[in-house]
Design a binder for these strands. Structure first.
Lengths: 121, 121
DNA sequence: ACAAGAAGTCACTTTAAAGTGCGCTACCCA
DNA sequence: TGGGTAGCGCACTTTAAAGTGACTTCTTGT
């Protein structure tokens, strides 16, 4: 494979936390280890397939780790790795900025809303 | 339009700085006002169409402002709005984290490289 | 006369991301 | 004996994002 070239750091970051779901998943995992089903409930719009797919990709990037308990029905949980925790501050700021952005847009009359603001626990 | 609903702040943030190009453009504009052609040269892989399209979207979100000088050939430049500047810290951290990520992956033997590290000026 | 230069639009086409639906496992409980 | 449960894989289909190439405008330099 020909060397993959980045031109600026943020490119690499976005490759990892970009996309529709990854940053959302990570924001939830910031607070505590979560089981698959817990994550699915926390992110109601995501499909089962997207959830596992995104988690696999985050695992491959060494951002989350996956613990499988050998039992039936299966029990699997996910948490941030130490390296993943190095994203925690950024994720928090992304959440806060977004909350502020929503406030502003609401104040400007846009018809939008934010369901839960329990990001900060 | 039916009320648009976010479930977590980061969702809104990503809608604005997500995608392949927006965060890269913003990282460049963090340092100084730039002309269209300057941006195009700073981001060699982007097409003319993508560049203007993304800039229009950022303008609509009140993150960048566009100044048109009434002359021919046209001269247009872009800069962060005051509100856009509130993203500056986050963008910087995203760049730094990405640079570190690239370093780690190189150290781990991945065949990747980072061309310019002149994000911080 | 005529090419070049700067920014941008238009009409498509391509590609990658996301979504859907179904099936499997193995155990517990009524 | 068969329904519920938790997590996952697979095979597609859909949709949105990104890419391409041609065409405009008016002025300056050759």
């Amino acid at each position: 494979m020909p060397t993959k070239t980045y031109h600026i750091g943020v490119e690499a970051t976005m490759e990892i936390i970009g996309g529709k779901w990854k940053s959302i998943i990570l924001c939830h995992l910031r607070h505590h280890t979560m089981r698959t089903g817990e994550l699915a409930r926390a992110i109601p719009q995501i499909s089962q397939k997207m959830l596992t797919q995104q988690l696999r990709e985050l695992e491959a990037a060494n951002i989350v780790s996956r613990h499988v308990y050998k039992q039936v029905p299966p029990r699997v949980d996910y948490s941030l790795t130490d390296y993943g925790k190095s994203l925690s501050g950024i994720l928090h700021e992304l959440c806060l900025w977004g909350e502020d952005n929503i406030d502003r847009r609401q104040a400007a009359g846009e018809d939008i809303s934010l369901m839960s603001r329990d990001d900060v626990i």
